[in-house]
């Protein structure tokens, strides 16, 4: 299990890096999405792999004999998810504006524009 999930995380990171290294600005945004996917999964998995016991407690407090999944990574990922929505939306709009201002979706052209 650990090996399998680790491989998937690595695969997602690899995909994100590959997308980052492309010239198209749309692929750059896809890379950002992959990166946040990979990181969310990594964070989540650090809590361990416990099935069927979501982090809920009953009124008497927790019972050590009934372990629940680690809530902290989940809380971290939950906010990260919503933030990544905000960030992705922002970068999408940014590339849209970039295209409207420059008429280009090629990042290498950006470098040449700066040089001028």
């Amino acid at each position: 299990m650990e090996v399998f999930i680790a491989l998937i995380i690595g695969f997602l990171y690899g995909a994100s890096v590959y997308m980052f290294l492309r010239r198209s600005i749309v692929k750059l945004v896809l890379g950002i999405i992959f990166l946040s996917h990979a990181t969310n999964l990594l964070l989540f998995s650090t809590g361990g792999f416990l099935r069927g016991s979501p982090p809920f407690v009953d009124e008497v407090g927790s019972d050590a004999s009934l372990p629940v999944a680690d809530p902290l990574p989940q809380a971290l990922v939950l906010t990260a998810l919503v933030i990544s929505l905000g960030v992705t939306a922002f970068s999408l709009v940014l590339i849209y504006r970039f295209y409207k201002e420059t008429g280009s979706v090629d990042l290498d052209e950006l470098a040449q524009m700066e040089k001028k």
């Binding site: 919503v82 929505l85 905000g86 939306a89 999408l92 709009v93 849209y96």
Partner: peptide
């Protein structure tokens, strides 16, 4: 805040 964020983002984008 989340409600406001999502609606304001989506409205702004859909208006384009």
């Amino acid at each position: 805040l989340v409600t406001g964020m999502i609606t304001s983002i989506m409205y702004a984008i859909m208006e384009e």
